[in-house]
Design a protein around this nucleic acid. Structure first.
Length: 278
DNA sequence: ACCCAGGATTGCA
DNA sequence: TGCAATCATGGG
């Protein structure tokens, strides 16, 4: 079921949906390749430069030929999930409820599994500004050049492109001790087959398999499950969420207590604690 | 000079 | 099983 009205014309897609917030969705820390330029956002997604802007309930996406990619964007922006149901499941009076009121416009993006895995391995004990810089360097060196007239960028490199990268080249990006994790993942001949075949696994088995990957611990695993596999129950506990938990012990946060949309609620709390609660 | 950032790994009890 | 030390890097 689709919870938005979609229409399109040449080089544009229109998403009409009340409650969704484009800016919060692409700046809440779940993705690293969207940037704001005035009142528009430019994202490098699926190997293309996408321009997006929002006015009231209408989000407009544009690039050359986008009218052929409607299904992709429905999935990417998670337009088939009933977010009103998630909001109703949050207990009133809790920090999570306050956060959800402020951040209810966030949608959980369904992102490319490979890009998500690499991005969140880099994210370990790192900050978002620097994570974005490192990812941009990877794209500039090994991605494909993209341009749409007035703007240019690079796609996120495929596995086959990154499988050619040496450990020394990775180290030169100042990724620190994460270089060996990235190298290991990039040189695993079966990585793409694995990531794709994991789609059918249960949450427990997906978690088990992802945790076997070098550089993937509980937190990175939860992020990949949430942002790459749309497993909304996955509950990433980073320093921000742990801080919220310690400051609100009465709310008793856990994946179990928050229910099957724990990860979505986590994202409300993460964004709220970092950007809106001041 | 320290502390922090969307933590993971390793070793040791 | 749980816990602490260790691991680069850059910004505040």
């Amino acid at each position: 079921m689709l919870f938005a009205e979609i229409s399109s014309k040449k080089n544009q897609i229109y998403i009409k949906k009340s409650g969704m917030n484009l800016e919060d969705t692409v700046t809440c820390g779940q993705c690293f390749r969207w940037n704001k330029y005035g009142d528009i956002f430019i994202g490098i997604v699926n190997g293309k430069i996408c321009r997006a802007k929002q006015k009231d309930d209408l989000i407009t996406l544009s690039y050359s030929g986008i009218e052929n990619d409607i299904d992709f964007w429905i999935e990417y922006f998670d337009l088939q999930t009933d977010y009103s149901e998630i909001l109703k499941s949050i207990k009133k009076g809790t920090y999570a409820f306050k956060a959800s009121e402020a951040c209810s416009g966030i949608h959980i993006l369904k992102q490319d599994k490979w890009e998500t895995l690499i991005s969140f391995i880099i994210s370990a004990n790192n900050n978002i500004t620097r994570i974005k810089k490192i990812i941009e360097m990877i794209c500039e060196r090994w991605g494909n050049f993209l341009h749409d007239g007035e703007y240019s960028s690079f796609s996120f490199p495929s596995w086959s492109a990154l499988s050619q990268v040496s450990l020394e080249e990775l180290s030169s990006l100042h990724v620190g001790y994460r270089d060996v994790y990235l190298y290991s993942v990039m040189h695993d001949e079966n990585m793409m087959f694995k990531l794709n075949s994991f789609e059918i696994l249960s949450n427990d088995n997906l978690k088990k398999e992802l945790l076997r990957i070098k550089g993937v611990g509980p937190k990175v695993c939860a992020c990949v499950m949430l942002f790459g596999y749309s497993r909304y129950a996955a509950f990433p506990e980073d320093v921000w969420i742990k801080r919220v938990e310690s400051e609100h012990p009465e709310d008793n946060y856990s994946s179990a207590s928050l229910g099957k949309y724990a990860g979505v609620i986590q994202q409300y709390m993460f964004h709220y604690s970092r950007n809106k609660c001041k």
